[in-house]
Design a protein around this nucleic acid. Structure first.
Lengths: 365, 365
DNA sequence: GTAGAAAAAGACAACGCTGTCAACAAGCGT
DNA sequence: ACGCTTGTTGACAGCGTTGTCTTTTTCTAC
């Protein structure tokens, strides 16, 4: 008999299930322990854990009991390694603001927990020329199933191109060019900004200062567009000198506000592209002895916690960031296992914004 | 010949290195690709990657070249699985505040990147009765090499006991009972709080309100102790009615301040146990028409971003949170590979705090 | 030049899981 | 009773590393 005979006992993997079990009470168990306890093969345990079909009810019950008894949790790394799915979602960010990223993280974590996925938070420097390589390294090392991109990273064309070329799944929390065909979640920045500007116009303001966001953020131009659009709709010209270039930081808000407010014909209201800068405007107004909202109205964007904390509370645009992040992950997971919903699902998700009226806006005297 | 002969070609692992290579340019490579390109075994590549000894210089060079050419990065999951070290540090938190956790994360990430470790951010509900089980599950699933515990989780005695029993390595960012013998990083809360209180006393305040932190935080009692100590040193009695119970949130600061300021003999200064609550005090003062610092002085703790953003800027205590987090991780890594520094290294790291003087404190009229 | 030791390199199992495929059991039509 | 399909279970390779052990090469001392 020259045909290759299977080795009868598979010698290397002796593994001594009882020896190992007897050695010491392990605080953490593997699929083998569960299988042994339930009297089934590890594959069956795997089936139960992954809710695969074709397991008899009573078998599944036995397995579930064993899992509960042993407090078994499948090892994440082993799953990653063995399967093409990675059970891991990576959030890429370049710290727009503490509260923004924490909200995103909350939303992502909620969605991932429900789906038994892990979350990886990865900071990147959007202005680094090496960012594509850095992201590549991260992908090679961690092999996440998908990425959640936050601004300003999702506005980096070269990065998106790299990911597309790679075939890496991603969802952006911010609009993407529709023709890219990649999913994103967002609110309609232009309309929100337009609405808030209209609100200011409606209160009688005619000279409204605008503080732009960091131009690396795609939102910068969209929010400006909304501001301009509102003026256009009212048939009002916009004084160029009322538009300042901010960087999204509190400090840049202070500076821009000083510049705007020192002008001869100063604005009666200032609309900043985010709340940090709006807080800076408030700060500058106090310095200059201007009462808000009596002498100056101020509006922000984001409804960050700071919008409530400052005095007076900021009128601002609320984006449901947490919900958007959750939606982004669901979108991602759905596109990864098209089993359920048949086709890939909607690729664009618009969320509703909300104008939050607080006490920082009044009619000009 | 009946003695067991090694199979000549190890049939199952055919793997066809050239076939696979020719199939398509893979965007991501494994240790096998590197080994093939450098003309060495995978074990040698592993040695080079892990800086193990006994590799000839020219061999190492060849391997390094191959790694660079292929942009090879070792797969994280495979490493976890194969080795006892997990190359992973988990940060456990129960959101004390957005800025706090982001600062910690920055510090942890900086230290981990330097050591080629990954970071896992895990939220937990400190008041959940199931928290020990939840942490256990997380440990079983992810098997991190060590944990970084932030308040209030590090003040949870049962959790610490579980970890100790498990033999899980951890470092706390906050003082631990010294006799536990576990490492921690911290500032001297009591002294810092005492110093700031002294500063207020030095400015002439005699009725200083104090807003306590959430009692689940160990820092709550320490900061109160410092406040009391300063009074003791000045031979001053403390009016119980000047002490309010806050929850660390902005809203609780507003409420406590209202209560304190509506008293007949109201305080001339309020010291809140964190900046969020101090911002709440500012808010309440504005509501009540009290000018800060003319009518009321306010001090906070943490030097969170909000301390700069409010008007007037908050006088507060700065903890070097980022540096502490970095220190915590270094401490953890050191205790895990005692190779270098011989013994386990210092188990306690005190960091210096700093009193940041801004504009929210003045002498009472 | 050669034995012996040390250094360098390699072979291969193992980590804990999933995917593939084979084996077996049960149900069904004829 | 027979073969068929369908449902259920298990055996085992393989994922990309590291750890252990073996083999080969190089160096050292005579």
């Amino acid at each position: 008999m020259t045909r290759p005979v299977r080795p009868t006992a598979h010698p290397p993997r002796v593994a001594t299930p009882e020896t190992a079990g007897a050695r010491r009470r392990k605080s953490v168990h593997t699929i083998n322990d569960v299988a042994a306890r339930a009297g089934v093969s590890i594959k069956t345990v795997s089936r139960v854990v992954n809710r695969e079909p074709n397991v008899r009810d009573d078998t599944a019950q036995r397995v579930h009991r064993a899992i509960r008894d042993l407090k078994y949790r499948p090892n994440f790394s082993a799953r990653n390694l063995a399967s093409s799915r990675a059970y891991l979602v990576a959030v890429l960010y370049d710290n727009p603001s503490d509260s923004y990223i924490v909200r995103v993280l909350e939303g992502v974590q909620a969605a991932c927990e429900a789906a038994d996925y892990g979350v990886l938070l990865q900071p990147f420097d959007a202005s680094s020329p090496r960012i594509c390589d850095q992201v590549h390294d991260m992908l090679a090392q961690r092999r996440p199933s998908g990425l959640v991109l936050t601004p300003p990273l999702c506005d980096l064309e070269p990065l998106l191109a790299t990911l597309d070329a790679d075939g890496t799944q991603y969802v952006s929390i911010a609009p993407l060019h529709e023709d890219r065909g990649k999913p994103f979640v967002s609110v309609d920045d232009v309309r929100a900004s337009c609405d808030l500007t209209e609100y200011l116009l409606g209160r009688g303001h005619r000279r409204i200062g605008f503080i732009k966001a960091d131009p690396r953020h795609g939102a910068a131009s969209r929010r400006l567009a909304g501001y301009l659009e509102a003026h256009r709709q009212h048939g009002l010209a916009v004084d160029e000198r009322l538009i300042a270039n901010g960087l999204l930081s509190f400090e840049s808000g202070v500076e821009c506000a000083r510049r705007l407010l020192r002008q001869a014909d100063r604005p009666t209201a200032i609309f900043a592209s985010n709340d940090d800068m709006a807080a800076g405007v408030l700060h500058a107004a106090q310095e200059l002895g201007l009462a808000v909202p009596a002498d100056l109205s101020v509006a922000g964007y984001d409804d960050a916690p700071i919008a409530r904390y400052v005095y007076p509370g900021l009128t601002t645009v609320r984006q449901p960031i947490r919900a958007m992040a959750t939606g982004a992950v669901q979108c991602l997971l759905q596109s990864m296992r098209p089993q359920h919903g048949a086709r890939g699902g909607d690729t664009v998700h618009r969320f509703d914004y909300e104008i939050i009226i607080r006490d920082s806006v009044a009619s000009p005297r």
